[in-house]
Amino acid sequence: MQIRCEGTVYTLYKEKTPIGTARLEEGTVWVEITPAWRRRGYGSYLLKELLRGNGGLDPKAETRFTAPLPADDAARALAAKFDFRPDGTRLVRRRVPDLSAVGLCHEFLAAHLAPGGFYIDATCGNGHDTEFLCRLAGPSGRVLALDIQPRAVAATNERLAAAGLEGVGHAIQADHARLGELAEAGSADCVLFNFGWLPGADHGVHSTAAGSVTALKAALALLKPRGILAAVLYSGQVIGDSERQAALAFFRSLPLTEYTVLVCEFANWADTAPLPCFILKR
């Protein structure tokens, strides 16, 4: 059994004989299985590959597919299996990205920050957060990114260049514990931390409690009044929980007269789940 893909047309072959097709036309899905081969799971196999090939199974992607209303019970069961639901005269399958700790940080910052600001990504990694901040800052804003690993700095600058954002932000190699040396006090609208290790790199190299708390203290000094510090804290078998506990202890020690601190817990996730935190400077 083999599937051949030509553009958005998927053809299923069994012993070199085509027995079904699935195609995508302007967001509408069509599936047809040769009558002799129906009710054997081939429709599911084809539809799954079509959705996979077009982002429909990516939990981080927002997608929308439509399909004609099914003509029989088998077709209705197939559609329901892949979350197509009736919507007027057709079926619709809508997916929004699963909420994550980083995604929650992005949503919070997008709702509370305005274009034109000065933003700092204190742990740029592969540059995803830096790119987000650059798009948020806009052409009139500025983003400084840093990471202790040269590989991360290079990846971030390459990402910004590919996105046409090198005029908004750039990354440099620096330890976030030295953050206070890289910008003037009271100059930043936002400082973002995504602690842990560099994705795809050696997990033995990761941020630590001592350096991270020093960096958090420096970040607060860099913030303007009404500025925001956002941090995602991690724990687990590799890095333990010392950094997370030290950061939380620091957050809880901050005076209410100067800061509002939010710690957002995913109550039905594992105890080691990432923890998004926000500090709003008064």
Rank of each mutant, 00 (worst) to 15 (best):
Q2C: 01
V9E: 14
K14D: 00
G20F: 02
L24E: 01
V29N: 07
W30R: 08
V31W: 07
I33E: 02
T34S: 11
W37K: 13
E49H: 15
L50Y: 09
L51C: 04
L51K: 10
N54E: 04
N54M: 00
L57Y: 11
D58T: 06
D58A: 11
P59H: 09
P59C: 11
R64S: 14
T66V: 10
P86Q: 09
D87M: 04
V96D: 02
P97R: 12
P97T: 07
P97D: 12
G103C: 08
H112G: 02
G117D: 02
F118S: 03
Y119D: 00
T123P: 01
G127L: 12
D129S: 13
D129M: 06
T130A: 13
G138P: 10
S140Y: 02
G141Y: 10
G141F: 11
V143Y: 10
A145D: 00
A145P: 02
L146M: 15
D147Y: 15
Q149R: 15
P150R: 12
P150Y: 13
A152F: 13
N157V: 13
N157T: 09
A161T: 15
A161L: 14
A162L: 12
A163D: 09
G164Y: 10
G167M: 06
I172C: 02
I172A: 03
Q173G: 05
H176R: 14
A177P: 01
L182Y: 05
F195K: 14
D202Q: 10
R226Y: 00
G227V: 07
I228P: 10
I228Y: 10
L229C: 07
L233C: 02
V238N: 03
I239L: 14
Q245C: 06
Q245A: 09
L248R: 13
A249E: 10
L256V: 08
Y259Q: 07
V261W: 04
A270R: 15
D271G: 05
L275Y: 09
L280H: 14
L280V: 11
